[in-house]
Amino acid sequence: MISQTVTFLIKCPDAKGLVAKVTNFFYLNEFNILSCQQYVNSVQNTYFMRIRLNADGTGITKKELEERFAYLANPLHMTWSVHYGERKQRMAILVSHTSHCLYDLLERNKEGDLDCDIRLVISNHQKLKPIADMFGLPYHYLPVSKKTKGEQEQQMIELIEKNDIDLIVMARYMQILSSQFIEKYPERIINIHHSFLPAFQGANPYQRAYERGVKLIGATAHYATTDLDEGPIIEQGVERVTHESTPATLKRIGADIERLVLAKAVKCHLQNQIIVADNRAIVFPEAGE
């Protein structure tokens, strides 16, 4: 028997009767629908659905469910995924010097706000080891240089595979991951960029924001892709600032935004609220969970 809570994420060309066909399928298979969220992109004529189900009492296996749903989905040209709730997703956190995002994620996980299993912290510096120690997590110090980048990333891959990691979070990891690394984990790497993208991509955004005299600063959480800071945006946040703000002030305000934005993006991923379409992230709101 499959786990009690099941989430389907569905994308397909828009057409009449999709809701009826999908919900009737689950009715006939004795599922109870907990929530059903929909979005239609009228520009691209694409339909998106997130449907959460209670499987208690169905007696159906995962294989049977997926085979039956594929029979419905294929003629409708659906791209879909199914997520079962019996195992918490396993997460690895990548960090460098800066501690605020790391500490925030670990604290939220400890308090139950992020429902996941954080397995390890990886860093190219030793500085943040005391924080990992405080939360009882393995801390892997993997220094990197231009010459050793390939070797260091291979070490990271070995740790990720050994721990069966589902999600990799770059919590201010100030290294550019190689295309080979990113392509190995599509839509499984979340990065926090300390700027409201697409403005001020790359390094030192707060200094450049100060020089530009901006009146709003922000942060962006996105999936990492081979195009630097160009991946599907999951969450963003902003705060107003004034001409009196110094680069140090902007950095301090920005750190608070980064914490909130990264935590929200990670939570959305863990709760299977995201469907990626081209380079856009369709993020369904929390449905009373």
Rank of each mutant, 00 (worst) to 15 (best):
F48L: 05
L65H: 05
P75N: 11
L53P: 07
M170Y: 00
L137C: 12
A224Q: 00
A248C: 09
V169A: 01
V40P: 06
Y173P: 00
F69T: 02
K146W: 08
A287S: 04
H222F: 13
M156G: 03
P205D: 03
P143N: 12
N24L: 14
N45M: 10
V214A: 05
N124K: 12
L260D: 05
S195K: 03
D256N: 13
C116H: 07
A209R: 04
Q89P: 04
T98Q: 12
L28C: 07
H222Q: 04
H193M: 02
A224N: 01
Y71P: 05
P75K: 09
A203N: 10
K11M: 08
I122T: 02
M78D: 00
A219Q: 04
W80P: 00
V261K: 00
I257W: 06
L228D: 08
T79A: 03
D56F: 15
Q4V: 11
E64A: 12
R172H: 09
A70F: 05
K184T: 15
L28N: 03
G213E: 03
T220Y: 15
R119H: 05
K264Q: 15
A20E: 09
S42D: 04
C116A: 06
G150D: 11
D115V: 14
R119E: 07
N45P: 08
M1R: 04
Y173R: 00
H77I: 14
F26E: 07
Q4T: 14
V241T: 12
V19T: 14
Y173N: 01
G218K: 01
R172G: 15
I157D: 03
G231H: 04
L72Q: 05
L72N: 09
L120N: 06
F26M: 07
R87M: 09
T5W: 07
Q152H: 08
C36D: 14
D164I: 09
D104F: 03
L128R: 00
G202V: 11
D229G: 07
M174A: 03
A70M: 06
H97A: 09
